[in-house]
Structure formats: structure tokens, C-alpha cells
């Protein structure tokens, strides 16, 4: 009886990580980052512009935020669609009013389906990054590598054509990956990706096709995570963002510049009863002298220049 004896073997038990993708290092021991113009906090407002298909396959799992009821799950389909029809226009107004520079993470299928919205975002001139093909096209361990290569090419090249932008950033749906995803992304001209939420600052990530930068887009302050997963109110979301901001600002006094990343979704905070809490936060942050509101790539470049 008992488990196979390999269960007590520990082949990766040695210095550093249990894989070769990046170096182990503690944040407080690293060189301090200096942001331009003596700013302390780089604010990265990242907007997920997503398409959740009605005919969800759920392979290998149901994406959080996706359909949960038997087909046709009209309630979840239309409530997500609400964000792209209504909520996002509230976001645009708020960004402009409070002088916030957002970055848009777009599912390529959404850009294909809603040219009006794609054009609107293009005309705004904000950075667009690729959020995969759509929310039900997951990247996952054990996925056929050729199938995944096709998926990445379809998503990245498609978005480049539709937007005219270089598209150098990537977020996988559900921030889930296969063992090959980083290699495939690097092969497709991606410079940075946001799936590894293990740091507060960017770091170098090794792939078979060169170095990617892992950018710290925290899930912890994500509106979907706090409001839909944790079932907190939008006011509680705002409280948590404020507490995080104050803490990070204080940390910069001894440790150099920090990033406050807010991953938000128009189908969550774009609702009429929630939008004022987003506006409140954008007001607080946008008017603070220590805050630098800018795009993901600008933050990445400033970090690289340090």
C-alpha cells in the first residue's frame, strides 16, 4: 500500500524556481526603478474588452465570467455584451474626464464582430494588446502545440490587421497558459505578457525564442475578481484600491517606483450602480501628483530604461 515511490522524489528541489523560466529574486533586493518626472506610481488601467460566445465549449474548463447555464445561456451572454454596448462608453467618458490613459486588452473575435467599437478605440489612440482570440479559446497544459500556434497567430495577426497597431502585449483568457504559450508568443512578435501574477514589477521571462517581459497585472484588484468572485460591493472595490494605492505610495519612499495595475471590465464596473466608484478612483488617482497614468508599453519602456 501507499503511494508510488516517486511521490517522495523531489527532482526540482534545488536553488531557485522549480522550472527554468525566470530567475528567483525578492522584490526588495532589486535595483530601484525611477519613473519619468519623479512620479512614484505608474498607473496602468487595463480594460478587458471581451467576447464570451454563447456556444461555449469549456475546454478544458469553463472560463470565469463565461456561460454557466444550459445552452442558450442568454443571461450571461447578454450581460457580458452589455459591457461592450453600454458600459465601455461610460468608461471612455470617465477616462477623458479624469485624464486617465487606459490600455485596452481586446479579444480578436470581439474586434472582428464589432468594427464600430474597434474603430472607436483606434481613434482614441490608446494602446491595444491582444487578449487571445476569445474568452472560450483557452490556452492550457497538454494543448496540441500546432493548434495553439494557429490560435496565437490567428489572434495576434488578426488584431494587427484590424487595428493597425503593432500589438506587442498579450493576456491569455483566464490568464491560463500551456507549457508552450510563452515560446509561441515570443515567436509571434509579442514583447510582454501579463499572465504571471507573481510580482509587482516587470521581470525577464525566458522562452525558446528570446526574452519576454512579464508585466504585473494583478488579479487581486481586478473588478471581476473582487466583485464577481469575492462578492464584494463596488464600494469595497474602491476601498481596496485606495488602501493599495496608499500602501504602494508609502513603499516607494524606501523602494523606488511602483506600479498600480487595475484590470477592469465594462460589464462589471460599467454598470450604472458601480460606475461612480470607478469614477471616484480615477479622480483620486488622476489628480494625485505622484501618479503617472500611462500605457502598459510606456511603463515597460520606462522600466527598461532604468
Amino acid at each position: 500500500m501507499g503511494l508510488d515511490k516517486s511521490y517522495l522524489d523531489y527532482p526540482e528541489r534545488s536553488y531557485g524556481m522549480d522550472h527554468q523560466r525566470y530567475e528567483w529574486s525578492m522584490l526588495h533586493e532589486r535595483k530601484k526603478t525611477q519613473w519619468p518626472n519623479n512620479k512614484k506610481i505608474a498607473l496602468w488601467v487595463n480594460v478587458g474588452v471581451q467576447f464570451f460566445p454563447l456556444n461555449q465549449q469549456g475546454i478544458p474548463f469553463k472560463v470565469p465570467g463565461g456561460m454557466t447555464k444550459p445552452y442558450p445561456d442568454l443571461r450571461h451572454y447578454s450581460l457580458r455584451d452589455y459591457g461592450n454596448r453600454v458600459g465601455i462608453y461610460r468608461f471612455f467618458k470617465a477616462f477623458d474626464k479624469y485624464k486617465i490613459t487606459p490600455t485596452f486588452a481586446i479579444n480578436t473575435r470581439l474586434a472582428e464582430r464589432i468594427p464600430y467599437l474597434t474603430e472607436t478605440i483606434k481613434e482614441r489612440g490608446n494602446e491595444i494588446l491582444c487578449h487571445g482570440y476569445h474568452m472560450d479559446k483557452l490556452h492550457y497544459g497538454g494543448q496540441n502545440i500546432n493548434e495553439e500556434k494557429e490560435l496565437v497567430e490567428q489572434a495576434v495577426n488578426g488584431l494587427r490587421e484590424l487595428t493597425g497597431q503593432a500589438i506587442t502585449g498579450w493576456i491569455s483568457p483566464a490568464k491560463n497558459e500551456s507549457e508552450n504559450t510563452p515560446d509561441i508568443l515570443a515567436q509571434n512578435g509579442i514583447d510582454y505578457f501579463c499572465d504571471w501574477v507573481n510580482d509587482e514589477m516587470p521581470y525577464d521571462f525566458k522562452t525558446k525564442n528570446g526574452i519576454l517581459t512579464a508585466m504585473p497585472l494583478t488579479t487581486e484588484l481586478d473588478d471581476q475578481f473582487i466583485i464577481l468572485n469575492n462578492l464584494h460591493s463596488a464600494e469595497d472595490w474602491a476601498n481596496q484600491v485606495e488602501d493599495a494605492f496608499q500602501y504602494l505610495l508609502n513603499e516607494t519612499t524606501s523602494q523606488g517606483g511602483r506600479i498600480l495595475s487595475l484590470n477592469i471590465h465594462p460589464w462589471v464596473l460599467g454598470q450604472p450602480h458601480r460606475i461612480k466608484y470607478l469614477e471616484y478612483i480615477l479622480d483620486v488617482l488622476g489628480s494625485h501628483e505622484a501618479v503617472w497614468s500611462t500605457s502598459a508599453t510606456e511603463i515597460l519602456n520606462a522600466w527598461k530604461n532604468n
Binding site: P60, F61, Y140, G141, G142, A174, K175, N176, E177, S178, E179, D195, W196, V197, T219
Partner: peptide
């Protein structure tokens, strides 16, 4: 809950 590598 996800297949390895379970990033979240």
C-alpha cells in the same frame, strides 16, 4: 483546478 501549468 486547471491542468499544469496552473498559472493562477
Amino acid at each position: 483546478p486547471q491542468p499544469n501549468p496552473a498559472l493562477p
